[in-house]
Design a protein around this nucleic acid. Structure first.
Lengths: 114, 114
DNA sequence: GATACCTGTATACAAAAGGATACTTAATTT
DNA sequence: AAATTAAGTATCCTTTTGTATACAGGTATC
């Protein structure tokens, strides 16, 4: 490997690791999918994702908001409501999420027949 | 959402979570990239990925082998060598890894200008 | 015989992620 | 005044992931 190739390779490793940091873990993509499908309120999102807890959902929502992947809006009615929404930038994840859905389904079959 | 839509949605959540289980975490994709780029030996892989430790590399290699994503070959020379290699199935991850490289680089810029 | 090489394993520990469950806050309705 | 509701927080705990470092085992080389 030339020096430039080596650098490009290291950049690629770093880039996938960065991506993993932002959308990795058990819940983040599931949360984005849930909001995308129409769940906008905290409890609706919580109920749509099996086994997630309030604490974890709260933390993950903050992380996603910090990374500009969702928008949090306070509605000052009574009782106060919060709405979460996807934004234009969220759709940039489409090329990652879609293949992951496909791959996950296919891989389960593959491993079953091992 | 109709019942079928609801089921498809739950299946998708599960599929991305399954994929995350197989290739998620800080190291797995980096290891696959490293082997793909030509590193076949344990120490070569270790040295090509900044900050990874032996213990973690060993565990992750086993996980990837269990999931049919790499092949481990014992070469009975002296000293005994082990070679890791990608297989045809590994390339099925291309549609996931490539977008993650692209997205990671782009996202870093996006966040920097926040 | 001592030393070096390679691919890990062993041990002990620290940090991060995830889980369970009760509770808070604040205004509005009853 | 009590009850209701939404969106979390607080507290405590368990599991997973990651770190540090030493060393084993078997042959080959010095």
């Amino acid at each position: 490997m030339t020096a430039e190739e080596e650098k490009a390779f290291q950049d690629n490793i770093k880039a996938v690791q960065d991506t993993m940091y932002v959308i990795g873990g058990k819940w983040k993509l599931a949360i984005i999918l849930s909001i995308y499908k129409g769940n906008r309120r905290f409890n609706d999102i919580a109920n749509s994702i099996p086994k997630i807890t309030n604490r974890v959902l709260s933390k993950e929502l903050k992380h996603l908001e910090d990374n500009l992947l969702i928008k949090r809006t306070i509605i000052t009615e009574y009782p106060i409501k919060i709405e979460y929404a996807v934004v234009d930038y969220t759709f940039s994840l489409h090329d990652i999420i879609k293949p992951m859905e496909t791959w996950g389904k296919q891989h389960k079959e593959k491993i079953k027949n091992k």
